[in-house]
Every structure is written in structure tokens, then in C-alpha cells.
């Protein structure tokens, strides 16, 4: 046999066939007593049920954390977690924060310098000095 196959694994392209939301679980922590949790308690009572019903892909837990600031901790499919402290925030500010955590991919926040990031090869190809008419010096 002159042809052999190298072992290769196909790579995933989330969103091309199916889209899987990258946020897996969210843990909401509140304190019953402390003033910094006032907005969080209001959020859990008023806005949170609707938000949780609209996002069934995410597993939510709500737990007390007495004498501490309220926190939202999100876990992602890539194994990372992101936490946002929501002390002294109003319920609608907290809703913004929880939406930010839901929409995040879980990757580290990096500066994007290129307009396009792709796993596909460039359509134009890599420039070659041996093709074309060349440059007359």
C-alpha cells in the first residue's frame, strides 16, 4: 500500500450546525441581612424567575452567603469560571451583569487585534515570491 492515513480529529465549529450556549451553570449568592445585598434580594424576587425561565440551558442555584457581598459565579463548558460581585447594585444593573455572564464564551478576555479570526485557510493563499511577474529592481 502506498497510501496511509494519519490519525486526525475533526474540530468543532459551534454555531455552524448547532449552537450550544457556553455558560453551563450560574450560582447566585445573597445575604439576607447586609445592605449590599439589597439589590440582589430584589433581583432574586422580581427579575430572576423570568430570566431563569428564559434560559433553560443554564443550571441556576441560589444560595445564602451570610455576611458577605452578593456574587454571581458562572461556570462555562471550557471549564473556566467567571464571577461578578454585585454589591450595592440595583436589580436592573444586576440583570445587565447576569446577561453579560450568560453571553460570555468563558474564554479569557483578550484584546482582539485582527478583524477576522478563522480556522479556515486564507482564500487568497500565502504570498509566494516565485509566482507572478515579480518585482523589477
Amino acid at each position: 500500500m502506498t497510501i496511509r492515513a494519519l490519525p486526525q480529529i475533526s474540530s468543532s465549529r459551534n454555531g455552524l450546525g448547532a449552537f450550544v450556549l457556553q455558560c453551563k451553570t450560574m450560582n447566585l449568592y445573597y445575604c439576607d441581612w447586609a445592605g449590599s445585598s439589597k439589590g440582589m434580594n430584589g433581583f432574586i424576587k422580581s427579575l430572576f424567575p423570568k430570566f431563569a425561565a428564559a434560559n433553560p440551558q443554564i443550571e441556576f442555584t441560589v444560595s445564602p452567603r451570610p455576611s458577605k457581598h452578593p456574587v454571581i459565579v458562572a461556570n462555562y463548558i471550557n471549564g473556566r469560571e467567571k464571577a461578578i460581585c454585585v454589591r450595592n447594585m440595583e436589580p436592573y444593573e444586576i440583570l445587565k451583569k447576569i446577561e453579560l455572564l450568560r453571553d460570555a464564551s468563558g474564554e479569557k478576555v483578550r484584546k482582539v487585534t485582527k478583524p477576522v479570526t478563522s480556522i479556515n485557510e486564507s482564500v487568497r493563499g500565502v504570498w509566494s515570491p516565485y509566482h507572478g511577474n515579480g518585482l523589477r529592481v
Binding site: M1, T2, R4, A5, R13, G17
Partner: peptide
């Protein structure tokens, strides 16, 4: 189709030739 076939695999990287 959505979860398995939508993944990408560059088939040209699979080939190993002995006497091309």
C-alpha cells in the same frame, strides 16, 4: 448533521504517500 457532520476535518492532511 448539526453536531457531528458540522465539524470540520481537513482531509488533505490525512494523506501519507510512499511512492507518489
Amino acid at each position: 448533521r448539526a453536531h457531528v457532520l458540522s465539524r470540520t476535518l481537513d482531509l488533505s492532511k490525512l494523506f501519507v504517500f510512499k511512492r507518489p
